[in-house]
Write a protein that binds this DNA or RNA. Sequence first.
RNA 1: GCUGACGUAGCUCAACUGGUAGAGCAGCUGAUUUGUAAUCAGCAGGCUAAGGGUUCGAGUCCCUUCGUCAGCUCCA
Length: 650
Amino acid sequence: MVAAEIRVTLPDGSQKTLPKGSTAADLAKAIGPGLAKAALAARVNGEVRDLARPLPDGATVEILTDKHPQALDVLRHSAAHVLATAVRQLFPHAAIGFGPPIEDGFYYDFEVPRPFTPEDLQQIEAKMQEVVAADHPFVREEVSRDDAKRRFTDDPLKLERIADLGANEVISVYTDGPFVDLCRGPHVPSTGRIKHFKLLHAAGAYWRGDERRQMLQRIYGTAWFSKDDLEGYLRRLEEAKKRDHRVIGKQLDLFSIQEAVGPGLIFWHPKGAMLNFQLRRFIEDVILERGYQLVYTPHVTREELFLRSGHLPLYADNQFPPMAAGEGEAEDVRYRVKPMNCPMHILVYASQQRSYRDLPLRLAEIANVYRNERSGTLHGMLRVRGLSMDDAHIFLREDQIEEEIFRLLDIVDLVMGKTFGLQYRLDLATRPERKLGDDATWEVAERALEGALKRRGVTYRLDQGGGAFYGPKIDIKFNDAIGREWQGATIQLDYEQPERFRLEYTGADNKPHRPVMIHRAIFGTLERFVGFLIEHFAGAFPLWLSPEQVRVLPIADTQVDAARALAGRLQGAGIRTHLDDRSETLNYKIRDAETHKVPYMAVVGQREAEAGTVAVRVRGEGKKQVVQPVDEFVRKLEEEIRTRALKPLI
RNA sequence: GCUGACGUAGCUCAACUGGUAGAGCAGCUGAUUUGUAAUCAGCAGGCUAAGGGUUCGAGUCCCUUCGUCAGCUCCA
C-alpha cells in the first residue's frame, strides 16, 4: 500500500501534509499566496533545488525568497542562462562553456569565431531583456548519458563535460525557451524573475582555466533582486574606481612607474616614500621590541644558492635570467638577483654554531627582491616585479613553534587590528596531497599552529590541503573600507630548507639537532600594503602616516611672517609641515589642501597672529574650525601621532 | 605569457569619413591681499608611445616593438 501523502517539516518546526508528488511550489502555495509569488527556490534537506521538483516524504523544506543569500546565487546562475540564451540567438554557432554565479554577479564562457565587442554586449543585453520579457519557464529534465550526448552532438565543450561526469551522477538538462543547457541547476522558476541585471565586460578566458587549452570569450554580468541593489552595486564599482591607488597615487604624487625603466618597478616619490618610511619604522620598532634582529643581505647571489634551496628548478619562471660573472671570475659562475630572502637568512644562521639557547633566532630584513612576474599580471603597486618584503625568518625548535606562532599572531593583531583597525580573518592551511616529510611531523606542526590559534581565542577557517608542500601555514585576510577582501600576511612553517642546508643547533643533550624555520611577513610587501592603504583610506591617511601633516595657510601677506613662525615651530616638533604663502585666496588654498588630503589646515589671520592662536580646519570636516593656542595644537598633534590614532583628536 | 581594447601637453580629455594638433586644470609672469573647497589677465607647454610602411598629405590607414587597461593564468 503506497501512502498518498507526504509530510514535510518547515524551518519553524511545524509540519505540513501534502499529496504525494507535490513540489516545493505546491508547498509554498499551501502556505500562502504571498509566499508562492515570492518563492524562487527551495532548500530541501539542506540542498538548494528548483521549486518545480517533487518533494520527498519526510524532508525538511525551506522556501527561498529574495531574502535568502543562496537565492541570489540561483538568480545569478539563471541570469547566466539568460545570457547564453541571448548569445545563442545572436550567434547560433557559439559553443557553450561554463556559466556559474560568482561574487556580485555571473559569467558565461563561449567559443565564438571572433571576440565580443562592446556593441555586441549592448545587443546581447537587449536580447536578454526580450528573453526576460518572454518569461520562459526553466524546465528540468534528467537524461541518460547517451541522450545527453545526442542532444549536444554539435557542442564539443558540452560533450567534454559529459564525458567527465561520474558514472552514477545524475545528468540534468535545463530548457528555457529556445535554449537547452547541460546544467546541474537549480534555477528560478522562469526567466521573468531576472529583472535587474547588467552586462559589464567581456574578456578572454581559457577553457577550464588551462592556459594550454583554447581561449573562450567570457562575458561578465551582474544581477540583483532589486533596482536599488543593482544601482548600489554599480555605485560601489564607481567608488572603487575613485579609490584606485593608481589614480590617487598620481593625484597625490605618491609613486610612479616609468616606461623607461620597466613595468612593475615602483618609483617612490617623496610623499609615497614617506609612507614607506613610516611603515618601516613602525614595523621595525615593533619587531625589535620582540626579540628580532635586523640583517641586511645581498641582492644578487651565485645561482647555486637557489639551486641548493630548491627554488631554481621550480621557481625559475619567476626569476630573472642569470647574469654572467664579473671580470676575473670563472666564466661559468652565474649570478641571480634574489626573488626571496630565505637562503640569505639561512646563511646568516649557518655562519656559526648555534645552541638551543639561541633559539628562537629571529632574523628580519625589509628587503628588496625581484620576481619576473608575467607581464599580464602586473597591476599598479599591487602586483609588481620589485618587491619590498617585510620579511623575517625564525629558526626554532619544534617545541617552540606554538609559542612563536602565538607571538606572531600578537604582532598581526597589533598591526592589522589595533593600529589599522582592520577586520581580519585567519586561515589555517594544512598538509596537501603532494608533500615532503612524514605524517608525524606534519601532525606536530599542524597541532602547534592550531594550538596557537586556539590559545589566542580567535576564530579561523580550516583550509584543508591548502598548505605548501614543505609545511602548513596561516594566511591573514582582511577587509578594506568598502568591504573588499585582501590577502596580506602569511606565516609559513618550513621543514624543507633547514634540511637542504643541513642546519643544526646543539641541544641540551650536546647532540646536533635540526631546527624548524618560520617564514613570515606582516605587511607582505610595502608595495602591496601601501597600495592597499591608499585604497582603504582613499588617500586620506591617518596623521602619523600622512606625508604632509599640517599645511599652514596665512590669509594675507601681512600674516606670512606669523605663519612662517608657526610652520617653524611645528617643524621643530617633528611635524611635517608646509607653508602655503602663495598669493592666493584662502578659499583656493583650502581647496588645494583638501584635494591633497592634508589632515590639518592651520589658518593664520590677523586675529590669530595677534593672539598667538591658530584656526584649525580638519580635513574632510568642512567649515567646522577650532581656534586654539599654538601650544595646545602642537600637543594634540604630538599625541595623535604618538598613538597612531586613526581619527583626528581635534 | 594569452585574448581583446587602448596610448594626443605634467593631469583630464577634444580633433567629422586622412587635409595647418585644441580646451580646462596644473606650471610660469603680472595684477590682486583675500576669513574656510577654484580672483583676474597674460605667457609658455607637443617629433600625437617608439620605429617602419601606404599616401600629394597620417594623430587618424597598415606592420613591428614598448607600455597601459579588462580578464585568463599566477600571486606578496
